[in-house]
Every structure is written in C-alpha cells, then in structure tokens.
Simulated scan of single mutants.
Amino acid sequence: MIVDSHCHLDFPDFADDRDDVVARARAAGVGRMITICTRIRRFAQVRVVAETYPDVFCSAGTHPHNAGEETDATLADYLEAARHPKVVAIGEAGLDYHYDFAPRDAQLAGFRLQIEAARRTGLPLVIHSREAEADTEAILRQEMARGRFEAILHCFSSSAELARAGLELGLYVSFSGIVTFRRSDELRAIAASIPVDRLLVETDAPYLAPMPHRGHRNEPAYVVDTARILAEVRGVDYDTLARQTTANAFRLFRRMPPFESVSAS
C-alpha cells in the first residue's frame, strides 16, 4: 500500500467520475489520498469529498495563486476548518513567482498566516514554491525562529539548495510525476539524495501525470508509476519505497489513521 500525499479530488476535472477515480486508486494499492484545499472559502467542497470516502483526507488552506482573492481570510478561518477530523494539514500555502496570479504581498501575507495556523494546530504545512526560492527560505527560517512547525515542500522541482535548507529546518520533501520526465535528471539526483525518513510521493492530480501517462489527466492511481521511478532512482525496489514513503506520510500527517483502522468501503 502507498499514500498519495497530494491531489485535488475536489477539482472539476473529477466531477464526472470521482467514484471511479477513487476505485482505480484503491485497485492500484493506494491506501490513502490527501485532497488539498486551494481556497479556504471553498473548504466545504473539499471537506465533502473527504467525508465521502473513508480513505480520503484533506487540508485547509489558500494556494498562492488564490491569495489575492482571500486577503480577508483570518487565522480563525483556518483554525475552525482544521477542527474537522478529516483535516490532516494546513495549506497549500507558499509563493509562486512564475505565474504571479496573485500580488506578491498577498502571497507573502497568506504564507505567514498559514504558518501560524500550522503552528497553532500542530498540523503540517503543505508548501508550494515556484521561482521564489530566496523568499521561501527566508520566510521559513524567520518563522522557524519564532516557533517551530512541521512542513512539506510539495511537488518539489526547485534547487538542491532549497532542498538542503528545507531538510536543515526539518521539512519533508515530496516528489510528483515531474521526477519521471525525460529532462528531469537534476531533479532525480536531488530525489536520490533526500534522507529516507524525509521522502514522500504524490500526484498533484489532475496535473503532472507521470510517464507513461504524460499528456493525460493525472489521478491518484498513477502515484504508483511515480513511486516506481523514484525507487529506481534511489536503488531500492518498489515495495521498499512504498513502505518508506508510507511510514513518513503517517509520521507527518499524524491525524490520518493507519491503513488497518479504516476500511475502504
């Protein structure tokens, strides 16, 4: 069994066949899926998906792309959402300077607010960082100095320097289908260097389908394909990689119950 630590099952891409998508994931050996919130104002939609399936859990947060839409979000909003027993993380928060869909000051403010929510709740923060490495590292160092919190650098595709900084701060690092792409040699080298107890795997579905599904809609079942490549990169077999990343997921997302305690009915 394996965990897809980051997907977006509430997105309209899955509206017509979500039951089938979840069933295919189960058949592929995916025992847990974490569907990630991108707008705290739409948390109810994410929550309903998590409530519908016993093996799906969720987060509460605001994506940097949507930070400009939710400048009125308060710490209380995140704390209230995080009370739900299916919420296992805060975010996805962070910085995206590639698209700049939201003003950078709104992204920065949202990032810091959700760090405080993670600190208050004890839930891990899911971090998105794209072309914003210097600011991401600076904020993480500043905020860790104010009070520690757990976090994960999700869908990692940044530099070895940011990976090292994250590990130094105690963060986890998660790899998506990007690690399977033909031109991702540098990323595969980073993936090979991550300590075994800090490694996770994800789909970020519906985006970034791994080989051999590239060009199609991604879905949680395909986390198995990413994990197989990640296992090759690290010189272990698939079962070993699955056990390692699953143990890490349960250690990080402590509110998520282990496989044997939930039946996927």
Score class of each variant (00 low, 15 high):
A191L: 09
L208T: 05
L187H: 12
L200A: 08
D197F: 05
E202G: 07
P195V: 00
H213C: 09
A221K: 06
V201D: 02
H216A: 14
R198M: 08
L187Q: 13
L199M: 13
Y222Q: 14
A205H: 01
Y222D: 09
P206N: 03
P220E: 06
Y207K: 04
M211H: 15
E202M: 08
R188F: 12
L199T: 05
E186S: 15
A189Y: 00
G215T: 03
P212V: 06
Y207M: 12
T203I: 11
E219G: 14
R214S: 13
I194Q: 04
I190R: 14
A221M: 06
T203V: 02
P210M: 02
H213P: 07
R188G: 05
R217C: 05
N218Q: 07
T203Y: 07
P220W: 00
G215R: 00
A205V: 05
S184L: 06
D197T: 00
I194R: 11
H213A: 15
R198G: 06
L199F: 06
D197L: 05
D185S: 15
M211G: 00
V196W: 12
D197H: 10
A191I: 02
R188S: 12
A221P: 00
A205K: 05
E202I: 10
P220Q: 04
A189N: 13
T203M: 07
R198Y: 10
S193N: 01
M211I: 15
D185K: 15
R214T: 09
S193Q: 04
R198F: 04
A191K: 09
E186W: 00
I194E: 07
I190Q: 12
R198D: 03
H216E: 13
R217L: 04
E202H: 06
I194P: 01
Y207S: 00
P195D: 09
P206M: 04
L199Y: 02
D197P: 08
P212T: 02
R188P: 15
M211E: 10
D204T: 02
S184Q: 12
N218C: 11
P195H: 03
D197M: 01
I194V: 15
T203N: 10
I190W: 13
I190Y: 14
P210Q: 07
S184E: 13
P220I: 04
P210H: 09
L208Y: 10
D204K: 08
E186Y: 00
R214C: 10
E219V: 14
